[in-house]
C-alpha cells in the first residue's frame, strides 16, 4: 500500500515534476534553452549575424540550417542572436512594470481615497487605449530603436499590475490579521509590507512569468512595424518584416516566427506551473 499523505516537498520539485505536469517541464526546458542561447551564443554560433556569409536567399541546407536572407546573412545565426535583442528588454520591461505597478497599486489600494482615485484614473486612461496602438504612438513619437520600444511597452504594461495588486490589497486589508496587526500598534508601512504584500504578490509573480512571452511578442510586433529594432540588428520582429518582403523564401520568416512561438508558449506554461504551486486553491494535480 502506498500512503497518500503528501510529503512536504521543495517548492521547485513540486512545481516542475515532469510526471505531474509535462507542459511545465516543457516550459522550463524552453526557458532554459533560450537562457543558454542568450548567454553563450557568441561563443558557438557558426556565423556572424551581421555579415554576409553566402549567396543571397539560399534555401535551408546543412551549411545554412535556415538558409540565408536577402543580404546573404545566415538566418539561423540571426535567430539565435535575436534572443539577445528581445529577451533582456522583455525582462527589463517585466521587472520595471511589476515594480512600478506593484508599488502604485499597493499604495493606492491601501491608502484609498484620493491617492487611489488618482492612480486608478491614470491606469484607466492608459488601459482605455488599445495597447499596441498606444505603444506604436509612443515609440513613433520617441523615434524607433529598442530603448524607445522599451519605454513604450513599459508605459502600456504597468497599469495591469497596478490594477492586479490594488485588487489584492483591497481584499487582504479587510482580513482580521490586518486588524490584529493594527491593534498591536504596527505602522501602516509595516502592515503593508509584512501583512498585506506577501499575500498579494503571488498573482503578480504568475502574471509576470506569463507576460514575459507576451512582451517578447509585443516588442517583435513593434519591430515588425518598423518601430522597434533598427535594421541590421537581428531582432525577430524585424526579421519577419524582411521575410514578408521575400515572401517565397519562407525560411526567412519561419525561423524568427518559431522563436517567438516557443518563447510565448514556454513562459505561459511556466506561469501555469507557478500558479499551481503558489495557489493552493487551484491544485494542478488530479
Amino acid at each position: 500500500m502506498t500512503s497518500h499523505v503528501d510529503q512536504p516537498q521543495s517548492f521547485l520539485i513540486r512545481a516542475f515534476s515532469v510526471g505531474r505536469r509535462p507542459q511545465v517541464a516543457f516550459g522550463l526546458v524552453i526557458a532554459l534553452f533560450w537562457l543558454i542561447v542568450l548567454t553563450t551564443v557568441s561563443i558557438w554560433a557558426p556565423y556572424d549575424p551581421l555579415e554576409a556569409v553566402g549567396t543571397r536567399l539560399i534555401a535551408p541546407s546543412m551549411t545554412h540550417l535556415l538558409g540565408t536572407d536577402a543580404l546573404g546573412r545566415d538566418v539561423f545565426t540571426r535567430v539565435l542572436y535575436g534572443a539577445r535583442e528581445s529577451m533582456p528588454i522583455a525582462a527589463a520591461v517585466i521587472v520595471c512594470a511589476t515594480v512600478i505597478g506593484t508599488l502604485l497599486g499597493a499604495v493606492a489600494g491601501y491608502a484609498g481615497g484620493w491617492v487611489d482615485a488618482i492612480v486608478m484614473r491614470i491606469t484607466d486612461v492608459v488601459m482605455a487605449f488599445p495597447a499596441i496602438l498606444l505603444a506604436m504612438a509612443i515609440s513613433a513619437a520617441l523615434g524607433p530603436g529598442l530603448r524607445n520600444g522599451f519605454i513604450a511597452i513599459l508605459i502600456v504594461w504597468w497599469p495591469i499590475y497596478a490594477r492586479l495588486v490594488r485588487g489584492q490589497v483591497l481584499s487582504i486589508k479587510q482580513r482580521e490579521h490586518v486588524e490584529a496587526a493594527i491593534s498591536i500598534g504596527a505602522t501602516r508601512r509595516r502592515i503593508l509590507q509584512k501583512h498585506v504584500m506577501p499575500m498579494a504578490i503571488t498573482p503578480v509573480l504568475v502574471n509576470a512569468t506569463m507576460d514575459f512571452g507576451q512582451v517578447v511578442l509585443f516588442l517583435s510586433s513593434l519591430s515588425f512595424l518598423g518601430l522597434g529594432a533598427l535594421p541590421p540588428s537581428p531582432e525577430w520582429g524585424s526579421m519577419i518584416t524582411e521575410g514578408a518582403k521575400n515572401f517565397y523564401q519562407w525560411w526567412i520568416a519561419v525561423g524568427p516566427g518559431l522563436a517567438i512561438l516557443t518563447v510565448v508558449l514556454g513562459f505561459n506554461f511556466l506561469g501555469d506551473g507557478l500558479r499551481d504551486v503558489l495557489d493552493p486553491r487551484s491544485k494542478g494535480d488530479k
Binding site: H177, S183, G185, A186, M199
Partner: peptide, 25 residues
C-alpha cells in the same frame, strides 16, 4: 500616539483566532 498605545498600553484579543494571525509567518 495611538500606535504606541495599541499593543503597548492596551492589548486586544479578537473573536476569531483562526483569521487573526498572519498565515504566512
Amino acid at each position: 500616539e495611538m500606535r504606541g498605545i495599541r499593543g503597548g498600553k492596551i492589548g486586544m484579543i479578537f473573536q476569531d483566532p483562526m483569521t487573526s494571525l498572519n498565515p504566512s509567518f
